[in-house]
């Protein structure tokens, strides 16, 4: 088991390395360069050359890549072009806002969607299943900002139950925090709920229709034991994968939610960076999101291997 997990870890590291190459080459191999972006329209050839010299842009791309990667590993995320501050400082106080939003949304949507998916799978073909299937099919195609704006219109503008801005203050008590965070968390949960529920349903149905389940049912085992002892252990690893996969949807959801509700978070920083074409900031944010995403996928795999003995022996 240890060997498989360490192989998987190495694979994750390799993926991260590939991601860093993609990010670096997408932002650096360009007709213009960072120096041109800084100086903008008012550039002269001398100023351009001087700045390139100062920033070390004259070195070959491969040297700069390893320099950048080395900095990343040591926690040096570079300096923002727009604010001239270290990127690490800018990210530090915003990370918590995004993390809190994502964790709360995951805490709500993961159990809810797994429960609904299981319910739907157990009643496959029935009325509950069909209703849920139709609802989620529609919900998947609805843009996140539509859900966010509807919730905002109804609960913040008309009913005034919750706050429309998710800007929390350190001195806020629980109810104030709840008022501020309810709508963004709800929007984000909606954005991933439908996908996760449908994927859970299909992976559980896959197991329900396998021969060993039929055998167990024919033995006359009660339905509860059938689900808990026979189906669930095998369903666990696809469900874990489903959860990890949906974190990808969570990323795009977080970006939209932070924009709608004015959350001063990491994705907002990334979008601002993209608007201002602040390359070091974009690179750092993208690497953080990429690393978190790859790490969570890795975690799901390792947990699956631990949950399901069959995965411990490679085919």
């Amino acid at each position: 088991m240890l060997r498989i997990i360490s192989t998987r870890l190495a694979q994750g590291l390799l993926t991260l390395l590939l991601a860093s190459i993609i990010i670096f080459s997408a932002t650096e191999i360009l007709p213009g360069d960072v120096a041109e972006a800084i100086l903008g329209q008012s550039r002269t050839e001398e100023a351009l050359a001087a700045l390139r010299e100062e920033m070390g842009l004259n070195r070959p791309a491969i040297v700069r890549y390893f320099d950048w990667l080395g900095g990343m590993v040591q926690g040096d995320l570079g300096t923002s072009l727009a604010t001239k501050r270290p990127v690490a400082d800018m990210i530090e106080n915003r990370m918590w806002n995004t993390l809190r939003l994502a964790l709360l949304a995951a805490a709500i949507s993961v159990p809810l969607s797994v429960a609904l998916g299981l319910w739907s799978a157990m009643r496959a073909g029935g009325r509950v299943d069909k209703t849920l299937a139709m609802t989620t099919l529609a919900l998947i195609a609805v843009p996140e900002f539509f859900i966010g704006l509807i919730l905002m219109k109804v609960f913040a503008v008309e009913l005034r139950w919750f706050s429309a801005t998710a800007n929390t203050r350190p001195y806020f008590d629980f109810s104030e925090n709840f008022r501020a965070l309810a709508l963004p968390v709800a929007t984000l949960s909606f954005a991933v709920l439908a996908h996760m529920m449908r994927m859970t349903r299909s992976s559980v149905i896959n197991i329900f229709t396998s021969p060993y389940m039929e055998m167990a049912a024919l033995k006359g085992l009660p339905k509860r034991r059938l689900v808990v002892r026979h189906a669930l252990p095998n369903a666990l690893s696809p469900i874990l994968t489903v959860i990890a996969l949906n974190l990808s949807y969570m990323v795009s959801g977080v970006i939209i939610v932070e924009t709608i509700f004015g959350v001063p978070g990491l994705t907002r920083l990334l979008v601002d960076g993209v608007t201002l074409r602040d390359i070091p900031l974009i690179q750092a944010c993208a690497m953080i999101f990429g690393a978190v995403y790859i790490l969570l996928n890795l975690l799901a795999d390792i947990l699956s291997i631990m949950a399901n003995p069959r995965l411990r022996y490679p085919k």
């Binding site: 993609i22 932002t27 960076g273 996928n297």
Partner: peptide
Amino acid sequence: EAFMAFPSTLLALVIIGAFG
């Protein structure tokens, strides 16, 4: 596979950030 190991929204943002 390398491209898919990375959230697609993020990838698009990085490219748009670089190219305008």
